[in-house]
Write a protein that binds this DNA or RNA. Structure first.
Lengths: 233, 233
DNA sequence: CCAAAAGTGTTTTCTCTACACCCATGT
DNA sequence: ACATGGGTGTAGAGAAAACACTTTTGG
């Protein structure tokens, strides 16, 4: 069958993963970056990437790369954009499809992570990245901001139980601006996606803040049926 | 240099173009489709596509495909998504990046178009398409609707001079719902992108409707600086 | 003079925004 | 008792939505 198209050229095809995590204590959005262990650009900071194999969909390739670095599967991941300039990789002509994913920063397997030379870096203090990875990150951040406004994906970055203060801090870290506490709570609670638990978080205040978790069924409903609007002051 | 990556497989890489046009008389959004002239799936309806060449960026490949079919360059075009399932093309494993573009339906070179077996088909009455092209079209339509809400790209589908009625019909065709005439005009005119001309269009009514054109400088300003919000009742 | 499409403002509703004080608790 | 962060409601502004009649002119 392949002979039909055989007059056309073939290309290296890679995937790169922009992996977002959120550090509750530091209230910072972070990226999982690696020190590149091979040429070209060995020793430089880079996104997690890999080549698409012969019998593997590009989505599967992205999942594989993510899993090899974090030990996680079944995480929120979306295709971002495909970068296809002829000279974007000095090693050869490589086309790369970028994906971004949101993971709970404390869920990841630290052993696997460190074996791969992966490190969390705050998005407010990123190192220089190889090739066009900087643009990938910029675009992913824009997408994340837009996406978070209309879909309740913020939860993907938090543990199962979280307080409203933590959730608000997360949104503030993503939007890079402060949000009115009362308006935020009003809006979030009015969506009926959150369940208040009896338990309180007691590390950061004497009074303690109630934990919430989000209702997975209604959440899935949201993700399927339609979007909502979460633009806050 | 290529040897660095040489242990990795290479893939066929294609682009497919979802080409939107708007028929003022029929008030319908249309797609430019071709009857495929080669195997596999010869004679079936398909999007315009082509393979990415050795020394050509994927954006350039998409522009080339579009131009070969329409004679047009410098048109509005955006990357949509990359389709990378292993078996999406029965001829071989081909990864395809889809682009969508908006063109003025009357601007295109009819000779070039017909030589390629290209035909305009209403999006309300599309034929079956090969491979995963149906999903590409669905996604492009969603993107178009979202994009049109926040960016003044509707003009790309109209001729230089157009009436407010024509513009409203276009938006109604895209949104697939009717829009309040007064609210629509209020909103559009308040953006200060339109210039009223002295000339009237007289084909469709006795009274005649004033032509407008949009101010290219302010339009470019909009496209660069920021978005606006065009959700209408 | 009449049919057919173009054009034009106001009121109501709702959503977004701004804003300040009390509560619970560990020390 | 007090310091610290958690939790709560209301009023005003602005945007979106609903709505109906007059104008023009070719036949």
């Amino acid at each position: 069958m392949i002979s039909i198209y055989s007059k056309y050229p073939r290309h290296f095809l890679a995937v790169d993963c922009i992996i977002f995590g959120y550090d509750i204590a530091e209230k910072e959005l972070k990226l999982l970056l690696i020190k590149r262990s091979f040429e070209p650009a060995q020793g430089k900071w880079s996104l997690a990437g890999g080549f698409v194999q012969e019998h593997e969909s590009i989505d599967d390739a992205a999942s594989r790369v993510l899993c090899s670095l974090t030990g996680l599967s079944e995480v929120y991941m979306e295709q971002l954009y495909t970068y296809g300039d002829v000279s974007r990789d000095p090693g050869a002509r490589v086309i790369s499809t970028a994906y971004y994913s949101l993971i709970g920063i404390h869920e990841i397997d630290r052993g696997v992570q460190q074996n791969n030379g992966a490190h969390w870096r705050s998005i407010n203090n990123l190192p220089d990245l190889i090739f066009d990875h900087k643009y990938m990150v910029e675009k992913a951040l824009c997408e994340l901001v837009e996406n978070v406004k209309i879909r309740p994906i913020g939860f993907e970055l938090l543990p199962e139980k979280f307080t409203l203060v933590q959730l608000q801090n997360l949104y503030e870290a993503i939007y890079q601006k402060s949000i009115d506490k009362r308006n935020f709570r009003k809006k979030l609670l009015s969506m009926n996606l959150l369940e208040k638990l009896d338990e309180k978080e007691r590390e950061t205040s004497r009074k303690g803040a109630f934990y919430y978790r989000f209702n997975r069924e209604r959440y899935d409903e949201f993700m399927r049926n339609g979007f909502f609007n979460l633009s806050v002051s």
